[in-house]
Amino acid sequence: MKDYMKDTDRYGKIWIITAAVIVAMVPAAICIRYNAWPELTAVLKGLMGVAPIFWTVGVIEVITYTPMLGVGGTYLAFVTGNLTSLKAPSALSAMESMGVRPGSEEGEVISTIAIAVSSIVTTLVIAVGVCLLTLIAPLLNSPVLKPAFDNILPALFGGLGVVYISKNWKLSVAPLLFMIALFLAVPSLASSVGVLVPVGVIIALIAARVMYKKGMV
């Protein structure tokens, strides 16, 4: 068991560092090819607008999702992106339906398979979509279908919520009530839901610990 995890960690590091280099090479290659290096001040100014939020969210996401997704799943999901809206729900749902425990080696295997398949399918759907863009863009942009894509998160988390809450409803009461009250009181927080994930996690953990100590769960 140890060897598989150790190897996964080693390969994962090699892949993710290579990915970092490749990702950074993309703008560098464009700059070299067109001899068009941007002004440093322009990049810094642009970065100032997003980095404070996104670097913070980045750190939070790594700390929050790594224990959930396991070693292989984490290395893969952080390269392929769309973590909250796709990779994490996909891994969670797979582990739940297989009845394996996250953090165990079985959980590691199932989470990695779910995230890998999800990444492959996403990449292929986007690739096919790009090839057929002129054909499907009007369909994707049609006002009739807009509500479907606008509501993809509630459509996804409704089902996932039932699976988890029905099994552990006592654990879900505190974070759920807190989050509903918070969003009702401050609706503008919806745009920074990523930052609130760890808040929900901390509340759930405190409530779980109290209930566990009292023998309620």
């Binding site: 929050t64 959930m68 654990l171 807190f178 509340i203």
Partner: peptide
């Protein structure tokens, strides 16, 4: 609890 915290958000 971690999962439920995330789902709750």
């Amino acid at each position: 609890s971690m999962f439920l915290g995330m789902i709750s958000a």
